[in-house]
Computed example of a mutant assay.
Amino acid sequence: MKKTIALFVVGMMSLVLAACGGNGEEANGQSGDGGKIKIVAAHNQTSPENPYQIGMEEFKKAAESSDANIEVEVHAGTLGTSESELVEKLKLGGADVVLVSPGFMSKTGIKEIDLFALPYVFDSYDHWEKVVDGEIGNQMADIINKKSNNDFKLLGYWTAGVRHYYGKKPLNSLEDIEGLKYRTQTSGAVANYWEETGAVPTSVAWGELYQALQQGVVDAAENAYPYFVQQNHHKTENGKYITETGHDYTTRFLLINGKKFDSYTEEQKQAVMDAAKAAVKKEREALYTQEEEYKQKAIDEGAEVNQIDRQPFIDLAKPIQDKTAEEVGVTDMLEKIREMK
Results as ranks from 00 to 15, higher is better:
residue 216 G to I: 05
residue 271 A to H: 03
residue 185 Q to R: 13
residue 255 L to H: 03
residue 235 K to Y: 01
residue 200 V to R: 14
residue 247 H to K: 07
residue 200 V to N: 15
residue 196 E to F: 00
residue 248 D to R: 14
residue 230 Q to D: 15
residue 179 G to P: 10
residue 215 Q to L: 14
residue 232 N to G: 11
residue 257 N to D: 08
residue 165 Y to K: 05
residue 246 G to K: 15
residue 232 N to T: 15
residue 222 E to G: 15
residue 254 L to N: 01
residue 264 Y to F: 15
residue 211 Q to W: 07
residue 184 T to L: 06
residue 179 G to A: 02
residue 260 K to L: 03
residue 173 S to V: 10
residue 157 Y to R: 07
residue 272 V to N: 00
residue 165 Y to F: 15
residue 210 Y to Q: 07
residue 269 K to T: 00
residue 248 D to W: 15
residue 162 V to C: 02
residue 192 N to E: 13
residue 266 E to H: 00
residue 254 L to C: 06
residue 208 E to T: 11
residue 169 K to F: 02
residue 229 V to W: 08
residue 248 D to Q: 09
residue 229 V to E: 04
residue 171 L to D: 09
residue 205 A to M: 11
residue 220 A to Y: 03
residue 176 D to C: 04
residue 235 K to T: 13
residue 241 Y to N: 14
residue 230 Q to G: 11
residue 270 Q to G: 03
residue 232 N to M: 15
residue 269 K to Y: 03
residue 160 A to G: 11
residue 246 G to Y: 14
residue 177 I to N: 04
residue 183 R to M: 04
residue 190 V to T: 04
residue 226 P to S: 07
residue 224 A to Y: 06
residue 269 K to C: 00
residue 262 D to H: 02
residue 216 G to P: 13
residue 200 V to I: 14
residue 170 P to R: 13
residue 207 G to E: 15
residue 226 P to A: 07
residue 204 V to C: 06
residue 224 A to C: 03
residue 261 F to N: 02
residue 206 W to D: 13
